[in-house]
Design a binder for these strands. Structure first.
Lengths: 258, 258
DNA sequence: CGACACCTTGAAGAGGTTCAAGAAATGTGG
DNA sequence: CCACATTTCTTGAACCTCTTCAAGGTGTCG
């Protein structure tokens, strides 16, 4: 039962909360406990030191507020230290599409490079703390540190590949498969950050999940209920416990049985 | 009427066909008539010369064959000189998803950077001719030519933004809207290459269009028929003439009327 | 010219949406 | 700390869009 059982981890605790007095704080990457997640590997001590200098500032983003908005001038990439974001685009006629959910150790803002303006909104779904990485300094430093250049390329390529996966999901999967893929993806990323493999707290509403998955919120809710009926997950509001991960995996990748 | 009226342009003629004797040919970017499309602007003559040296070879890809396949070792990006490609991913259970259609002046292969292996197939939909851009040399040269580095970043960011648009399409549009958006996008890109604003020859099957748009081929066919009935387009097999572009635009972006 | 791939169209059916109502959680102000 | 407003979530029923299955037509290439 999930009732009355608070999840053992809470996303707020990804990183020990550092007391922060001002709104923008300098901090060293080399001592950041997300280093393995967001920093290039194989840098010399001297190179690491120079990359430290790249992280100009940190910024706090309150839940519900934006890190950047569509149309904003692009100046920096943002590495998420703590918190949880959604990125979304709005078409001219007001249609909304969540294009991704980002958590600690991930980078947002890549959309802004091509036209020097952001083309989507990045909204904090919980209080967040991000590192500002001024892009012109990334480019400068990239010319001197090949490992950094390579890292930036990989981050962008990874995002392209991720989006291919979302296209597959949106283009060819049914509601159950989409939600199963979504849950597995979330829990896998959380697990990589030290959280449970089977329990998670959703930071987004059913509507936001639906927007990301190309479904209506009612369909998301119904599909959750169906998973509960089938004993695949336990759901209490935003608390989800995955009871039968194999069943979820099989939904995403139905075995070609003989 | 479209019957018996061959389209004024043919995608095969994007670039004058250069007689090519071997399978891999050296050629100068600086003299390529796609330069404005695929090369960074504002390079000095000396820099341009060095970028020329980057384009190691050219390669012919016959219609129906692959430029690269999922799992192939990643070594190069490919700039399309002539021809037309689709990129597609296949899920473990055999589901297929076309992730994009690429034409002359566009770059394919960005998906391979992150894991040094390609994660999708690139299949020529007509005989094609591509420039090989070895990625390690791109990275080397990028450290010396900031304009080139910036250009590579913009290409990757543009692809990310394009995919956001596809996510919006797949996540929130109905069949008619999807097909309208698809046609407008294709014709706009062809127009940028000197072709007609209103006529185009589809290089892909209904099934491939459907895969890209998250629809079945029958739905694509039916939607074409509906557009024809409504006098929005004329269709004869793969020849399409857009009669009422405004109607298509309105489908994609329904005006919020008072 | 015949085989094959591709396209069109119809009819039935399934999956997801829409509309609506109510329940549960969350936030706010007194 | 409680009462009330608001947001979020769940569930039901009718409807609609797209899919599936099927058949026939058209075009293309060896």
């Amino acid at each position: 039962m999930l009732h009355g059982t608070p999840p053992p981890h809470d996303a707020h605790a990804v990183t020990p909360i550092v007391p922060l007095s001002s709104n923008t704080i300098r901090v060293a990457c080399s001592s950041c406990n997300l280093r393995e997640l967001c920093m290039p590997l194989g840098l010399s001590a001297e190179e690491l030191d120079r990359v430290d200098g790249l992280v100009a500032n940190r910024r706090r983003v309150k839940r519900g507020t934006s890190l950047f908005r569509c149309g904003d001038k692009f100046t920096s990439l943002y590495a998420i230290r703590t918190g949880f974001f959604k990125t979304c685009i709005t078409s001219e006629d007001g249609r909304d599409q969540v294009t991704g959910f980002q958590m600690a150790g991930e980078v947002v803002g890549l959309d802004g490079i091509v036209n020097d303006r952001h083309t989507c909104d990045a909204i904090a779904l919980e209080d967040a703390d991000v590192c500002l990485l001024p892009f012109d300094r990334i480019e400068e430093l990239s010319t001197e540190i090949p490992g950094l250049q390579r890292h930036v390329h990989k981050i962008m390529s990874r995002e392209i590949v991720r989006e291919h996966g979302v296209m597959l999901l949106l283009g060819s999967m049914r509601a159950e498969e989409r939600l199963a893929a979504f849950l597995l993806n979330l829990v896998q990323r959380l697990h990589a950050r030290g959280f449970s493999q089977s329990e998670l707290v959703l930071r987004m509403t059913r509507e936001e999940i639906g927007s990301y998955l190309g479904l209506k919120l009612e369909t998301v809710s119904r599909t959750f209920s169906k998973f509960v009926e089938e004993g695949i997950v336990e759901v209490k509001q935003r608390h989800v416990r995955i009871v039968n991960a194999d069943a979820l995996k099989q939904l995403v990748n139905p075995q070609v049985c003989n």
